[in-house]
Write a protein that binds this DNA or RNA. Structure first.
Lengths: 243, 243
DNA sequence: CGACCGTTTGATTAATTTCAACATCTGTGG
DNA sequence: CCACAGATGTTGAAATTAATCAAACGGTCG
């Protein structure tokens, strides 16, 4: 059993190590960071649009999302976050939040001053580089979402979003058949794909019918990962995973 | 009359200066950069998805876009670029292109090795910071596009996209009434908003009818900039312009 | 002039939303 | 342990939005 702050540091180390590889010195520097730990229920706002933000937030366990709201009240989720993800690295350089960060499940998160991360980046250029790469990959994902929502039909769109979630969680194992929990309500999938919950329900049904996957009670079973990716027009290049 | 490479440096200086303000030393460092100048026709590919990229490209005049294509052939423009914009700063850290860069009009562009920009960033941390801020603002714009395409109806979507273009071109003057050239075909607007050209045409008509703007031959006349922004649900905060 | 590209318009079709009802699951307090 | 309330999931029918198909119009360039 390690302390909660150490666990946050551990998650961050794993993530950055995956991105560029870390030396012992850099690992130690990250391990020395102090995170303020917070246990929050589902649907808790971590940052609101317009806030001036001086703390970065890392997910230790649970899930969170980033979303924006248009005038008529429609909500669009623009990103999902999971263990190890830093929600708002951008606040290292931009203080004003232009959207909302909210947990989607019960979660454990860690907070650390943006100034502390700036200092870390100055002292360890490779860590600064890893932060920058993380931001660039996020941007690449946003672009794929624009394509997904703008040009793919509802069924493929939902399948693609699920593929991306799986690809980001799986981290490297290459099983063709597996099972996992989908920690989203159909309404959250709808808000992420620009559809309605009702239509997402029908598309999940259609995907199940054609054997893309089986699902019940939020449990998703993939019998043929390659096939699902084909159905979803999913090509993971845009995730820029360490090969 | 200055040399073309110097003009590229000039545009870049203006842009970075707008983002964070530059010292004389930094300006001189940018002025010392050598750009390889290229005059290209409309619809020229500058980078293709899958390319390994070792040069960054800056627009000196004309317009370009970034786009992705889905399996069925649908094209989605995910960003527009104009004079002073660096198209692909991301290749300073990611070598693989995950989408296409293409001019939309005849254009003059300047190329410079990513390694040269990395060196510049190492020698001038403030320039590195300006690069990072530019990337972060781009990411913020992608997120707004996800919202725009995912949740706003066609008319507002088109109006919003036009507002963003105007806001990025206007740079600070606060006229309420003005006129400008829209350098896009209706098909390009369609590819950027996730609609068809036919429907864009009808939405432009509807916007004209309700007095959002007048337009003919690609010339756009705005009589009430505030009103257009209201119609478009356009709030420029996400552009993070230097206030 | 004629070909081509982009724009405009109308009619029809397809995809998705909306509305409404009901079913199922989950957590909580009695 | 059960009953209940609230949230989530499911289904059907109608309404709406946007796409598709098709044709004509307008300017531009060789």
């Amino acid at each position: 059993m390690i302390g909660a702050s150490a666990e946050a540091a551990q998650r961050l180390t794993e993530k950055l190590d995956r991105l560029i590889g870390l030396t012992t010195i850099e690992r130690d520097a990250i391990a020395a960071l102090q995170f303020r730990i917070e246990y929050v229920p589902a649907h808790t706002y971590l940052v609101r649009e317009g806030d001036t933000v001086t703390q970065c937030c890392i997910v230790i366990n649970g899930y969170a999302c980033r979303h924006k709201v248009e005038r008529a009240g429609g909500r669009q989720i623009v990103a999902f976050y999971m263990a190890g993800d830093i929600l708002n690295l951008q606040h290292i350089l931009l203080s004003k939040a232009d959207d909302n960060l909210q947990t989607t499940t019960k979660a454990m998160v860690g907070w650390i001053a943006t100034e502390r991360l700036r200092q870390l980046g100055r002292e360890h250029p490779c860590i600064a580089k890893a932060f920058a790469i993380d931001v660039l990959i996020d941007a690449s994902i946003f672009r794929e979402w624009v394509l997904n929502i703008g040009r793919r039909d509802a069924k493929i769109r939902v399948a693609h979003m699920i593929c991306e979630f799986i690809a980001r969680r799986k981290t490297l194992d290459t099983l063709s058949s597996f099972s996992m929990t989908l920690p989203f309500t159909q309404e959250q999938i709808a808000d992420a794909t620009g559809l309605t919950a009702v239509h997402v329900n029908r598309m999940l049904r259609a995907l199940t019918d054609e054997g893309a996957f089986a699902h019940q009670n939020g449990q998703l079973t993939i019998s043929d990962w390659k096939k699902l990716q084909t159905i979803a027009d999913f090509n993971p290049g845009y995730l820029h995973e360490a090969a």
